[in-house]
Nucleic acid binder design. Structure first.
Lengths: 197, 197
DNA sequence: GTCTATATTACGATAGAC
DNA sequence: GTCTATCGTAATATAGAC
């Protein structure tokens, strides 16, 4: 049966998303052209429009997909136990997940301003749910006397910023293994919320 | 004496830098055109090239200027006293300085990838000096027994990420005043490095 | 020092052949 | 479903008049 010239598989759509994710993370949304993305995929620029309506939708799909996966995998994590156990789960999950999804994490922080207003609101709502998840854990720990916090919302934001910061410096071939980094950060998080003796 | 049509002052250069800083922070380096910058300043695009050789140099000058100011103002801070005092100074200085320089801070994190390789190395060296400054304080505190840390470099990075994160959510008209935020974060930093009783 | 005008290149997106 | 070709627009940067 006839194959049209450039068609090697039925996964052009996912390949477009993967190429865009990598290029946006490396050079930034505005700096990447549709021709560059097409070049990575191995098609001509016009062919992209069989899969996406426009460039903006492509960006939104990437960010939306990332947030959906974050919340879904987080939900798979066990969410019961003492506040300390739940906080440790959150800490280790956050570091591991964000390490595995570096490109998506990067553009999720960098390219929010390139979303339309309503697309931004949708992403922001998802991000907020993740943050509230941590805040709930912190408040449970305060109620049980396990944690001491002056402001659970601020603490949640501080912890997330601290943990996400790992992505800016950690390298696979560096001085520390990821498991060690995870342990160091968990110790710091424990200190941060510690009830003082 | 004759004035050429569009010339209202002798500070076109600084005005260009100010306009570029604001526009780059708002829309991103790649998304901002020289015509937009010129429009903000009140000149035509061609006139910008009397002040800057090209767009890339403009970005580098902004980032370099920001890092120079950060290190200079940090040096004006008093750098003596106990490790705890010096850590408190660093914490409060970081929050205040980064709050006053939101746009510059933003592009300093976002637009590093748009620098040429050598320009990036120059900025990275300055950023590293700032980080080492904090690391030195932490090591002094560990040596004196005031702090407990498993890894001073990781702790320095974690603290800086945590403090810089304030910029992503703090609003002047929000629930908390900046002085309160400063206090909450200083408490968290103290916990983070605390020697456990 | 700024203007107007322009050279050159590239962009996002679309049309129609196959 | 992808190709080639192209439309309409806008980009950085430069040249020369004033």
């Amino acid at each position: 049966m006839a194959r049209t010239s450039g068609s090697f598989s039925d996964i052009t759509g996912p390949k477009i998303r993967a190429a865009a994710l990598r290029l946006f993370a490396r050079h930034g949304y505005a700096a990447v052209s549709m021709r560059q993305i097409a070049g990575e995929v191995g098609v001509q620029a016009g062919a992209l429009y069989n899969y996406i309506p426009d460039k903006q939708s492509l960006l939104f799909d990437l960010l939306k997909g990332h947030m959906d996966e974050l919340l879904a995998e987080r939900a798979d994590n066990h969410l019961t136990g003492s506040p300390t156990t739940r906080l440790e789960d959150f800490t280790r999950f956050h570091i591991r997940f964000h390490h595995m999804r570096k490109d998506a994490v990067f553009i999720s922080y960098m390219e929010l301003r390139n979303l339309t207003e309503e697309n931004f609101a949708l992403i922001e709502a998802l991000r907020s749910r993740y943050e509230n998840d941590l805040q709930t854990i912190l408040e449970a720990g305060r109620a049980s006397g396990d944690f001491t916090l002056s402001d659970a919302k601020v603490s949640a934001r501080a912890i997330i910023a601290m943990l996400t910061g790992v992505n800016t410096w950690f390298r696979e071939d560096g001085r520390l293994k990821l498991a060690e980094v995870e342990q160091i950060y968990w110790q710091m998080v424990q200190n941060l919320v510690a009830s003082r003796g």
